[in-house]
Nucleic acid binder design. Structure first.
Length: 567
RNA sequence: CGGGGUGUGGCGCAGUUGGCUAGCGCGCCUGCCUUGGGAGCAGGAAGCCGAAGGUUCAAGUCCUUUCACCCCGACCA
């Protein structure tokens, strides 16, 4: 590609709207252009990178026998009512009506469509298992789109769905996808980690996320330094530090007047004890106006994703008003003892067998001391705590670490959740109708571009891996007024094209420095510089973007040199 | 949805207590010059100041409404 014919829409100015490196660089390199919040055009350069990612994904999925298809973006409301998600995904969906007032949404995902499709294309166990995938635009009206392609409202996703006669078969395909995903992210040259994950509102049991490690990630990953345990913090299990407070004499069980003591920090100061001696109480309310008081040791935090498995429906921390109506108190004095009997008690296992604890007394400005877990009407203990780096690995007991990650892939075993809702059946070997078992596998294709840049950039711009670079080599004539240079560049350009080496040729009438800057910003792995050294000694300077190393290469040796490097 | 902020040539911004022809940098166009890390000089094009309404002799500037975009939060009693 001659750059004189290309759109090189680069900028040295840092765009105001972009916060993180990948977003800034994608805009500056002219890869994307924003139309409106969270909606981007992929310019030729950005599209080239996108296509490279798609190609790798296709190759690896085809290898495990998945079949590509393309499903509609526009999906009828009825399909979503059937699965019960028309209401549930309320805020997330873009909706529209046709001229007859029929309602539709722009697909935020395709479980509904594929399950419906399944009922028409598969009838018998003989057709199973089968896996279908597509690379398609998805539409999600995110609460807050940000970071460019990282959290966009229109984005490209690879989604795949597998169908099975039983769980065992599903597990096998799940493992195939796991391996294919691993190969995909390895080929993309990303540093990533596979973690256990909560399956969220998509449902299902077993689930793994593929996380690209980056400071700017929106997820916290917990992993063990010693064994292979790794999990999204949303799901992570660990051993919290045990705490023995027998160093203190057993307090008399009584109420203490505690004016202005509201937070756990306030309590530490007031009682002169560490936060492990307190029971933290948080009141939640769900959409049915049921109340839940959650009890957890004062040094720990509640993990609401775990709570979502216990409390049904949407829920949130109760308002100050609710607190007053329910217990007649404001913040800070809530406690499990003497609380209104219609409030459900959800106790974290960190409370189990505790003694001599201090907690709210359900009375204004009052706490109660000398409480043991036996004093509270706890029917069952749950794991509702958030794991952090103070925890030990529950598998091997070693230290846990925490790191930020960008979720680029997620695989789920849906089992029969959607097939039951959509009555997706097949005829089994016995002749009876059975619900099909399903798996679901996603990759955020456009998000990968951002993630890859977050891992590979410097002050000058993007540093593409060979797998993703829009061009592998950039031929740069230092002075296009010198015929000798231009003639040689034309020649080597044709040679590279004939050798199927993806290259561009910066034949624009700019000064050399300008072209170097552009090349580095865009992130082309190799610059082939034809200048004074060529005129004097027939030597071409080849500069490697990743290492900043420069190689003097004889004009005749260029192809072998590049072939060696680009292998 | 709550809080904060910003809307002025393509981009980034300035524009005082309302006042005359709305500026600057980058980019763009023309010419000269230059060609190894985003050069220099000269000339030029490009704006109903986000939108609507109002106050005023006079509005980019004041008031009201509205839209868009950005940031923080939507969670620990």
């Amino acid at each position: 590609m001659r750059l004189s014919n290309y759109i090189v829409n680069t900028s040295k100015e840092i765009p105001k709207e972009a916060e993180i490196a990948s977003h800034q660089l994608m805009l500056r390199a002219g890869m994307i252009d924003k139309l409106t919040a969270g909606v981007y055009t992929f310019l030729p350069l950005g599209l080239k990178v996108l296509r490279k990612i798609e190609k790798i994904i296709r190759e690896e999925l085809d290898r495990i026998g998945a079949l590509e298809c393309l499903m509609p973006v526009i999906q009828p409301k009825e399909l979503w009512e059937q699965s019960g998600r028309w209401e549930k995904m309320n805020d997330l969906m873009f909706r529209l009506k046709d001229k007859n007032e029929r309602e539709y949404c722009l697909g935020p995902t395709h479980e509904e469509v594929i399950t419906d499709l399944f009922t028409r294309i598969v009838k018998s166990y003989k057709d199973l298992p089968v896996s279908l995938y597509q690379i398609q635009l998805k539409y999600r009206d995110e609460i807050r789109p940000r970071f460019g392609v990282m959290r966009a409202r229109e984005f490209v996703m690879k989604d795949a769905y597998s169908f099975h006669k039983d769980k065992k078969c599903l597990q096998k395909t799940y493992d195939d996808f796991y391996k294919a995903y691993t190969r995909i992210f390895e080929r993309l040259g990303l540093k990533f980690r596979v973690v256990e994950a909560d399956s969220g509102n998509i449902g299902g049991d077993s689930s793994h996320e593929f996380m690209v490690l980056a400071q700017t990630g929106e997820d916290d990953i917990i992993y063990c330094e010693n064994c292979n345990y790794a999990s999204n913090v949303e799901k992570a299990k660990g051993r919290f530090a045990l705490y023995d407070n027998s160093e203190f004499d057993l307090d008399e069980k009584k109420e203490i007047f505690t004016p202005n003591v509201k937070t756990i920090e306030d309590m530490e100061v007031f009682f002169k004890r560490s936060n492990k001696n307190f029971i933290k109480c948080v009141l939640y309310k769900n959409e049915k106006s049921e109340f839940f008081i959650c009890l957890i040791r004062g040094d720990l935090e509640i993990n609401e994703v775990k709570l979502a498995h216990i409390i049904s429906g949407e829920f949130a921390i109760a308002s100050e008003e609710d607190l007053i109506n329910l217990a007649g108190i404001g913040k800070g004095s809530l406690g499990p003892i003497g609380i209104d009997s219609k409030v459900n008690i959800i106790a974290d296992i960190s409370i189990k067998n505790t003694k001599n604890m201090i907690t709210g007394a359900n009375k204004k400005d009052t706490h109660i001391q000398g409480i043991s877990s036996d004093d509270i009407n706890i029917k069952k203990y749950y794991d509702i705590h958030k794991v952090d780096s103070t925890f030990k690995c529950s598998k091997c007991g070693e230290n846990l670490k925490i790191e930020r990650g960008i979720e680029v892939g997620h695989i789920f075993q849906l089992e029969d959740k959607y097939s039951k809702a959509s009555k997706a059946c097949f005829t089994g070997e016995s002749g009876k109708e059975l619900f099909v078992m399903m798996g679901c596998y996603g990759i955020g294709v456009t998000r990968i571009i951002g993630a890859a840049i977050e891992q590979n950039y410097d002050d000058n711009g993007i540093k593409w891996s060979l797998a993703l670079a829009p061009f592998l080599v950039n031929i740069i004539p230092v002075d296009i007024k010198k015929d000798e240079i231009v003639l040689f560049c034309d020649k080597i350009y044709n040679e590279l094209l004939n050798a199927n080496i993806e290259c561009c040729y910066d034949d624009r009438n700019f000064r050399a420095g300008f072209k170097f800057k552009d090349s580095d910003l865009i992130g082309i792995p190799y610059k082939l510089i034809v200048g004074n050294k060529f005129l004097e000694k027939g030597i071409i300077e080849i500069e490697e973007r990743s290492s900043n190393k420069k190689y003097d290469v004889d004009a005749k040796e260029i192809l072998p040199f590049l072939n060696e490097r680009l292998k």
